[in-house]
Design a binder for these strands. Structure first.
Lengths: 222, 222
DNA sequence: TTATTTTTTTAGATTTGTCTAAATTTTAAT
DNA sequence: ATTAAAATTTAGACAAATCTAAAAAAATAA
């Protein structure tokens, strides 16, 4: 079955909002989709007919298993494209979201799966969010901020929560980028700073702020 | 300026039809776009307002310079994506057109130019059609069928006009694919067959039919 | 050159996704 | 338990892109 980009956006938005709350409200959706509540109501009625969601007037909305499956496929596409843009086309982490919003609606399943293989089956996108595999299974990423990692543990940078220009500049300066493997050497209680070591480099110190916003996956990132 | 996928398809179709005839007719367009003449008339009126084409009732249609510029950008995207699909994602020549029809409407200019660089600025797509550069300039491909190449000349396979399964199978069997460099060793008048040599392989003979449908670029293909 | 056929356009309708304004239901507050 | 406020839905409209059927113009043939 093929759905319009608009319908896919609704399904995706409901999916994301559902992570927070069981049932999603009309207003929350209107807000997320930058549209009006009345438009949301209209669309929910249509999506209900297509059996992608459960919806009773005034009672909010929930995805059916079908709807969830579709949502996961869209999320998969979005994140794979983001990974592609950063990894292969040298885009910055902050500029890929918008482009991926368009690319995620390209329908070919084969394209997505080939892209996945071409990228060597990445487990997380540049923001550190897990990429569902071809069967829709989300990899259970052991993701944590550097500040939460035990001393002597190591992992791969796969995301960053503070994406300000300043932050990115600092990371670039310290040679830290997506995919960089690092090891936690010491943690200083006084100021929350952390000493990390990157392969082939001298250990460097990162502040508490950086340590808290630098996300690392360990165990199972490709 | 951003245009709907539908409008872009009209512009692209007119562009292609214009290669044949100066002025494009309503029926020809309806045919090319798999739609009805009445719908074409409707759309032409809109595109005229947007100054993408010259149109007078019953008099056919022609792209303005603006329209042509847009068309070239769409063609560029289409062909770059096709190249990407074949070259990087291992798609067959015959399956990429449909997917590229969707990808060509992704709007980011930066994406296209990055993709171009990533692919190392290819000059022709898998069907042998030239890829306009970032300024809209079409590379002047010296393209010819193998049958038309002089003895001892060589070039790079960059297209095939007969894309039947049988043809593709034969080419695969002879180890001929997109990008294969070959040299014309002898030409036999009797049956039009041609002896070609591929690097590191013994010379092989190809029939007149194959020689006529195997397109080679020489001189300036990347 | 008149008649016939073909092409093209107009008129009016339909679908999708959206909107505003008004009505209704639910929730929260007194 | 009413009432006020907030959330949601309905009703009716609109733009984009398409369609069918009928009218008009152009091309062709007798």
């Amino acid at each position: 079955m093929k759905y319009s980009a608009s319908k896919e956006n609704y399904i995706k938005a409901i999916f994301h909002l559902q992570q927070e709350q069981e049932s999603v409200t009309t207003n929350a959706l209107a807000d997320a989709l930058q549209t009006k509540p009345a438009s949301v109501t209209d669309m929910l009625k249509k999506l209900k007919i297509e059996a992608l969601l459960q919806y009773e007037k005034y009672r909010g909305v929930k995805l059916t298993p079908e709807g969830k499956k579709l949502a996961v496929q869209i999320v998969r596409k979005h994140r794979l494209w983001e990974f592609f843009l950063v990894e292969k086309l040298q885009f910055g982490w902050e500029e890929v979201h918008e482009i991926a919003e368009e690319l995620e609606h390209i329908s070919s399943k084969k394209l997505v799966d080939r892209l996945d293989a071409f990228l060597d089956f990445p487990k997380a996108d540049p923001h550190g969010d897990p990429i569902p595999d071809m069967h829709g299974k989300m990899p259970a990423l052991q993701q944590a901020a550097v500040s939460e990692m035990p001393v002597n543990s190591s992992g791969t940078v796969n995301g960053i929560s503070d994406q300000s220009a300043d932050m990115l500049e600092l990371l670039a300066h310290k040679n830290i980028q997506l995919g960089t493997r690092l090891e936690v050497k010491r943690k200083f209680e006084v100021d929350g700073s952390v000493e990390i070591k990157i392969r082939n480099q001298q250990p460097v110190n990162i502040s508490e702020h950086v340590a808290k916003n630098l996300l690392v996956a360990y165990g199972n990132k490709k």
